[in-house]
């Protein structure tokens, strides 16, 4: 590396200065990254308290990665992904309850439904920008909450759906909790893998172009709306699969849980923002920081009064917004940049 490289290297986050990596390097990095995320599972697999947290961490890492596809790469700050999450959860649970359809298959109809419904409901709102898009998608979440409470025959209404505990591989119900952890790990791995392939494809580049400047994107022959719709379909379908897995893990789903803003819809955004939006590692990092922190705070401060752990979480959000605007991934990058400059000086 020569000094000229250092002088022109720029501090923006998370993309190595250098050419487009060959596929083999990417595959290697992916494998190493996954191994690293396996470490907590290997260390704590006997501790059921932590195992549950790790399971949620993997699940929400995958969900944040899914959200990040349209929000981070595409710049469409959706607060309505709870809708896709819930559609996935209800579809998988309902198919299993009514027709004994194995959740392994039951994940797909929800995903397909969201790949269709997502673009359909986002299409009119794509005219809106920034905060307005966020509010409009938030409204989707609220409409869906009201409908879920109302359509008792489908969703079980406010009481929700209960999936009986009938352990079997084909039922995706396991007596060993570690099986769920592995399941969520695989989900995360697939979501990250899809993100990597996406961001090395034409659609991925077009998505970034649309985020940066729609007029410039059009001038490059890009159909802006088509790119947004495709990315929405992918993001929504992955979110639905996460919802289906969530349903099979907790086995009791009700509207207040599925459409909760702090726990679901806004959580995806929170994790990605804390980790670093618009990067592949950011949402995963965010989940690995926030989900355990939140669970730990709940366990430690839960006893000292209702809401105390959430106050702390709120402060974490506030401080992250104020002092880590590019997320952890961005902060790490700045530090590395700083260190490299000092070394070269």
């Amino acid at each position: 590396m020569n000094s000229d490289d250092l002088a022109t290297a720029d501090p923006s986050p998370n993309r190595p200065a250098g050419g487009i990596l060959p596929w083999r390097r990417v595959a290697l990095l992916y494998a190493v990254g996954l191994l690293v995320t396996l470490v907590p599972l290997l260390l704590l697999s006997r501790n059921f308290f932590w195992l549950n947290i790790i399971t949620y961490t993997y699940l929400f890492a995958g969900l944040a990665v899914a959200w990040n596809i349209i929000a981070g790469f595409g710049g469409q700050f959706s607060l309505g992904h709870g809708v896709f999450f819930a559609i996935g959860a209800y579809t998988t649970a309902r198919l299993f309850l009514d027709w004994e359809i194995s959740p392994w298959l039951g994940l797909l109809p929800g995903a397909i439904a969201c790949a269709v419904v997502g673009p359909l409901i986002f299409w009119p709102t794509f005219r809106l920008k920034g905060s307005f898009f966020a509010i409009a998608t938030l409204a989707f979440n609220e409409v869906a909450l009201v409908l879920a409470n109302y359509l008792e025959s489908v969703t079980g209404g406010p009481r929700g759906l209960q999936v009986p505990f009938r352990a079997a591989f084909k039922n995706m119900i396991f007596t060993d909790p570690r099986a769920y952890t592995v399941l969520m790990f695989v989900f995360m791995a697939i979501a990250v893998g899809i993100s990597i392939v996406l961001m090395r494809s034409r659609l991925g580049y077009y998505l970034l172009a649309v985020r940066e400047d729609e007029d410039a994107a059009r001038a490059a022959g890009i159909s802006v709306i088509q790119v947004k719709l495709r990315a929405t379909a992918l993001s929504a379908a992955l979110t639905a699969i996460g919802g289906g897995l969530f349903a099979m893990y907790i086995r009791t789903i009700d509207p207040l849980t599925l459409f909760s803003l702090p726990d679901i819809g806004v959580k995806f955004a929170l994790l990605s923002l804390i980790g670093g939006m618009g990067t592949i590692t950011g949402p995963v990092l965010g989940a690995f920081l926030i989900i355990p922190l939140e669970s730990y705070l709940r366990a430690v401060f839960g006893g000292s009064g209702p809401g105390v752990h959430l106050i702390l979480l709120g402060f974490v959000m506030l401080l992250a917004a104020l002092f880590m605007r590019r997320g952890v991934a961005g902060a790490i990058d700045s530090l590395r940049q700083h260190w490299r400059h000092r070394r070269s000086a």
């Binding site: 200065a17 172009a209 940066e212 400047d213 007029d215 410039a216 618009g278």
Partner: peptide, 8 residues
């Protein structure tokens, strides 16, 4: 000019 600022 409309460069895509965060891209190389």
């Amino acid at each position: 000019a409309k460069p895509l600022l965060t891209l190389t």
